[in-house]
Design a protein around this nucleic acid. Structure first.
Lengths: 188, 188
DNA sequence: CGCGCGATTGAGTAATTTCAAATCTAGTGG
DNA sequence: CCACTAGATTTGAAATTACTCAATCGCGCG
């Protein structure tokens, strides 16, 4: 039974036991309770986070006070305020736990250190990020050309597990419609 | 006067003349006229493209036949159908030229070859892709929380040069509103 | 049993789209 | 120089869609 992070990374490239231990030594562990914040607006964002257990949401609050959801993250997903993290700026989004959660934290410095020392891990991160880029492009296309109903159906197909664990209110905030509208698009 | 690609890459990390020549030898050049397609729906997408000169748009056509714009690209930008390119699948978007255009083409194979041979170039691509990821997240936030008017104003601020070179119809298709609506949000 | 949270439903309002027509602009050929 | 045309932009009015605010319903848990 391998470590979840190892399984995750080895989808891209294999590592020896020694290499993986070395990689893992650059992470720290953090445990959070439901409703606790992992990243809070206005604060620094020292780390990227790999989810070992639990469920989180990253939200942005618009000027009129409405909360929209940028992303969810469950087991084996990464989550952070990347804009703030990479630019070492203050967070503009909140990330909080929807369930009791455990994450591995990787600081910017440790990521750069690992990447410069171990070509293979930089390769992993490049491929992961490329895949993430493609996923975001698909979401943009779906926001641009699909109706609320189509987006909801795509979500159900794409993330069946998440659907089970999330209240519909939050799916609505992710899809960019009000919960009432989401509730109404049954037969439509 | 350095090569545009060299200037672009050296924003991340420096290369010797020999290294850069070697990198450049993995690219091919393509020239296209206005209205010509660089990527066409249904076809394979062998290359990523770095724009030397000109202006292009990447569009996705929804089921009801409406054309929405996923991205623009002008000098020093990269553009492709990344989903299709990385997965060696058929294109689902069209990319065509709004002006006479010249691009450098990098095949998937040559990218992987360069990345495995030269750690520094893989580093460049990782950093570039991370920045792209952040930019897409910002666009998603803007689609979720901002009104059409706010999105338009953000666009004007963020891309003043593009604004000069694009008809408003296309900006509307990028922002996800009809051209009529865009036209109406002057004083609103 | 009653409370709290989430989901649904109803009714009125606001925003956007659609379709159509009018206006404007830049480039072309006479 | 002027008329003409194509493409882009604007405007109008009706129809559609989504939102807001409020009330109700349903269910699990103490």
């Amino acid at each position: 039974m391998s470590h979840p992070l190892r399984i995750h990374l080895e989808k891209i490239s294999p590592f020896s036991d020694a290499e993986f231990d070395y990689i893992l030594s650059h992470f720290t562990t953090k445990k959070l309770k439901k409703h606790q914040f992992l990243v809070q607006e206005g604060n620094a964002v020292p780390n990227d986070h790999f989810v070992l257990k639990g469920l989180l949401k990253a939200t942005h609050t618009s000027q009129d006070g409405k909360e929209h959801i940028l992303q969810f993250a469950m087991e084996d997903w990464w989550i952070s305020d990347y804009q703030a993290h990479f630019n070492q700026a203050a967070a503009t989004i909140n990330i909080d736990c929807l369930e009791e959660t455990e994450v591995l934290c990787l600081s910017l410095h440790n990521r750069e250190k690992l990447c410069s020392e171990l070509h293979k891990i930089e390769h992993c991160f490049r491929v992961k990020t490329s895949n993430g880029y493609v996923a975001l492009q698909r979401r943009i296309i779906s926001l641009l050309d699909s109706s609320a109903k189509e987006r909801y159906e795509q979500f159900l197909l794409q993330y069946p597990t998440l659907t089970q664990r999330l209240p519909k209110t939050m799916i609505a905030a992710y899809l960019g419609v009000s919960r009432e509208t989401l509730s109404r698009l049954h037969g439509a």
